[in-house]
Design a protein around this nucleic acid. Sequence first.
DNA 1: AGCCCGACTGGGAGCGCTCCCAGGTGTCGC
DNA 2: GCGACACCTGGGAGCGCTCCCAGTCGGGCT
Lengths: 343, 343
Amino acid sequence: MGPRAGDEERPTLEDVAAFAGVSRSTASRALNDDAYVSAAAREKVLAAARDLGYSPNQAARSLVTRRTGAVAVVLSEPESRLLDDPYRAAVMRAGYRELADVGRQMVLIFSDIREDLSRTVRFLEGGHVDGALVFAPHRADPLPKALRLLRIPVVFGGQAAGIRRGVHVVDFDNEGGARLAVEHLVAAGRRRIATIAGPQDQSAPIDRLAGWRKTLLDAGLDPADLAEEADFTLSGGATAMTALLNRHPDLDAVFVASDMMAVGALRSLDAAGRRIPDDVAVVSFDDNATLAPAMDPPLTSVHQDPREQVHAMVETLMQLLDDQGLKPRQHILPVSLAVRASS
Amino acid sequence: MGPRAGDEERPTLEDVAAFAGVSRSTASRALNDDAYVSAAAREKVLAAARDLGYSPNQAARSLVTRRTGAVAVVLSEPESRLLDDPYRAAVMRAGYRELADVGRQMVLIFSDIREDLSRTVRFLEGGHVDGALVFAPHRADPLPKALRLLRIPVVFGGQAAGIRRGVHVVDFDNEGGARLAVEHLVAAGRRRIATIAGPQDQSAPIDRLAGWRKTLLDAGLDPADLAEEADFTLSGGATAMTALLNRHPDLDAVFVASDMMAVGALRSLDAAGRRIPDDVAVVSFDDNATLAPAMDPPLTSVHQDPREQVHAMVETLMQLLDDQGLKPRQHILPVSLAVRASS
DNA sequence: AGCCCGACTGGGAGCGCTCCCAGGTGTCGC
DNA sequence: GCGACACCTGGGAGCGCTCCCAGTCGGGCT
């Protein structure tokens, strides 16, 4: 094929060394600021690298170090959800930032359920990345089980489908958050406290529903028939709220398992002529920074910070990277209640 | 440091070859389904690879092939914008899909303006990726200029800040889209057609504003004082709409430069007691799949498909990858008007 | 019979880097 | 005065792969 035009001969470490008048080893040491390089040599090498426009070949480097400097962030969720899920968007941002802070590059992977997961596994196996942060909220998702066999460290964000031991997990206290929300409503004198639950094929919504139920029972209230399941979307929330109002026109509060669904619930309540919080108090979950405070009225919401979760996950992964023997643990992050005008 | 626990000795090609009883070369040929391998040998190698759980070391491979199989998607935008910009979310999805379709891995890079762009450049230089798709809508963004010097092929999505030649660009026909929108309003008999423009430090909104202005002039209408600039957010759109209504209570149509701003405009119009489309017709831009049809009334919007744009960008990049000599060109994608009840 | 050519195989070289080891200096302590 | 030891340097080996080249073999042609 012959030498291509535009192939501009990338300088190698050897070139830099020759230009600086030192050996390859010394050049390498200078660039990786190793000890045992004289100031003069370091200076010359750095200047040479700058002049030649040198940048190290990562493939060569990681071939010998067995480190790529990259970490995968795997989002396993059906197409539709990701596009308008602000929490996932925040996770991507946070992942990028937190990994950059520890000098790692994020490689985003979308792994839909209906898709072949073998490609994802093959990629993670292929030595492209040093480790993976995995978000796979669906219980039926085969991904987590497949990833257990991986030769790279994996940290899960949220419970890993069906697997309770032997994996590293950083999750929020979903049940505790629901408890906070409901206790807040009980303390405010509410007695008919309904809930709009999220999809019950995912761990987080299951735990939130359980927290709602237990707290009601603890307070001597009856949860029977006061729960409606929806799909985390705005319209799903609206539909569920309407159904609840039809069944229980006397309800005086609702705990909604996500901000987005709460927006829908607000619309239904509004359409039904209910005043918030006078007639019906609303508390939601997520406390999305752009959504919750912007509503009318602003939403009281259980606060969970994606950045905090990702930070803990990165921290765990970094530990794993230099100590394979680390014991798997479930790291449960506390949540708090951001009280606003809706309750 | 000694051999680590859990270091499980990844099998190499050599191991597979030995296991299969052939040479390294033959094993390599079988796995890369090269010609000139006997069916028997291929069979044995494939079986061996399966049994040993072999997966090729990408670093070693790309060291010699000088290909990584990865492509960067660079999003250069301030933090806040990305979180709730549905168009960007769609771009990420589309990027992942389109690249996967050509057997490439997407590496997402967020490159904020205020951040050091040197890290981004260093990464792209470092041989981590074979090429880059860059979205840098801000005219003042220094990134595009920095990327020109890169030794890897780059394709821009939307006009590249200040650079008009020597770069590959895939853009939508923003001015043409605005023209479509305004002509539609004119044809419907509207005469006081205002606009809510996007930030005028970006190419796309500039072109949309220009299209609005020119079309009005062509129709013999006066654009003076009928434009208001906003920041692409919902609340920005609402504020701008209110300002326009105050200045021109008699306006009978508005062309809004994005769906999100149109949602805000709808609220302001509603609050001001204007009926849509009876009193004021609304046409927006983007035709976001989840937003535009879901509004009340559903929004007439200029349709642009992120997937189409990304597809064209990937196509161009692939051509670039096996033919460096390809002439830079501006690829302008047509847009259409999705007419709905708001106009 | 000789020969050529296509099908297939194995070994060597080398991609660009890091790490190890052998060596060369200078400084200190006994 | 000479080992001990820090500081610094250069060369060799080798990471795991692909590619090139020199082979071997068998069948069809002259």
